[in-house]
Design a protein around this nucleic acid. Sequence first.
DNA 1: GCCAACGTTGGC
DNA 2: GCCAACGTTGGC
Length: 154
Amino acid sequence: MRYWLMKSEPNEFSIDDLYLRPNQTEQWDGVRNYQARNMMRDEMKNGDPVFFYHSNCDVPGIVGLMRVTREGYPDHFAYDPEDKHHDPKSTPDAPRWFMVDVTFERKLNRTISLHELKTYADAELAEFALLRRGNRLSIMPVTQTQWEFILTLE
DNA sequence: GCCAACGTTGGC
DNA sequence: GCCAACGTTGGC
């Protein structure tokens, strides 16, 4: 089992939106970055725990927990010319983009902000991908040690 | 294969 | 709104 962090802008799709979805489950579509795609297509497995991270908002940070409930499958929204993330180079015969399904687990009692996480950047979270300079990936791996440490902050 | 131009992300 | 970081594109 591996641990993950997935970013979303809360004005686009928030932890509360996930809570309100049928079965509290959402397909994580629209990712158009090869590294992130590879993680969804190849590495994320059913049952893997995921941090839900709110980005580009007043208080960026980890707001909840979810779980992978369907492993990588083609992001069919890429075929739709009307879709915001349409990609004519992705076809049903040769899908270029993939997504996973994630299911709500729980909200944290409070947001563990990016600001707070950074205070451990020279200690427990020295290797945390989120804190690496310039890292804009929307999906990133979390080690078990990092996962457990972050939850002790709650 | 190089690299300049351009677009996007996302914190501040 | 600014801008640093960095991925992608496309001319050569």
